[in-house]
Amino acid sequence: MSETSDTVVPRASVFAGLRLTWTAMIAGSILLFWLVLALFGPWIAPHGEAEIISGQTFAPLGEGGLLGTDKLGRDVLSRLIYGVRTTLLLALVTTVVSFAFGVTLGFAAAILKGWFDIVVSRIVEAFMAFPSTLLALVIIGAFGTSITVLVLTVGLVLSTSVFRVSRALGYDIGVMDFVEAARARGEGTWWILTREILPNCMAPLIAEFGLRFTFSILFLSGLSFLGLGIQEPAADWGLMVQENVGGLFLGSSAALIPAACIASLTVSMNLLVDWFQQRQQGETVLEKIDQ
C-alpha cells in the first residue's frame, strides 16, 4: 500500500469537488428557484393570496393574471407563489417530525435489542399494515383538521419507514469492530450511538431525508386534494388542484399548473437524492457513461 501524501491538492472550485452531474445541476437549480420564491413570495406576487382580481372565473392564460384565474377569479400565479411557502414548509416540518420519531426509535431498537426492539417493531409493522392514506384519513377524521394534527399525522405515517431504515443501519454499523472496541472500552449507549454509529449513518440518512421530503409533499398534496389538508383561503398546491379540477372541463389550466409544480419539486428532489446516493457509493451513473 502506498503512503498517502501530506500535500492536499487544491480543488479547482467548490463545484468541481461536489462532482455535480447535469441532472443534479438542473434539479438543484429548480429547487433553488422554488426556495427563493418561498422566501420572497409576498414581495414578488402581483396580487394577494386570496384577492379576487377578476369577475371572470377560470380565465385562460394571459387574461386576468399571467397564468389566468381560478374558480373564484383569484390570480393563479399569486396563489402559486404563496402556495410554495405552505407546501415546502409543511413538508419540511412533517419530515423533521418523522425523523425525530423514526431515527430515535430505530436506533434505540437496534442498540437495546431484546424486548424493546420486538415491541416497537411489531407496533410499527401494525401501522405499516394500514394503507397510509386510510390511516391518515381515520386520524384526521377523529381529531379534526388543524395544522398540528396534520403535521403529527403525516409525520407519524412517514416515520414508520424511517424507523425501518434507521433500525437496519443501526444493526449494520452496530456490529462493526470499532463499535465493539468502544463497547470493550466500557463506553455508554449514548456515546456509542452519537459518536460511533450516527456519524457513519449520515449519508444514507440524508438520502432518506430527501426521499421522505418528496413523499411528504405528495402525501400532503393528496390530503389537501381530499379536503383534509390545508383549508381555504390559504394557498397550497395540492389544494389548488382540488379547487380547480372542475375547470378542466372548461379548458382551464388552473388545476394543471400547480400539479406540474408538484411534479417539478418531487422529480428534482429525487434526482438530487439519486446523485447524492451514487456519489456516496462511488461513481454516479452519468460519470460511468462518460468513460
Partner: peptide
C-alpha cells in the same frame, strides 16, 4: 481487521 476497527469518521 484494521480497516473496520477504526471509526472512519473520527
Amino acid at each position: 481487521m484494521a480497516d473496520t476497527a477504526l471509526n472512519p469518521r473520527q
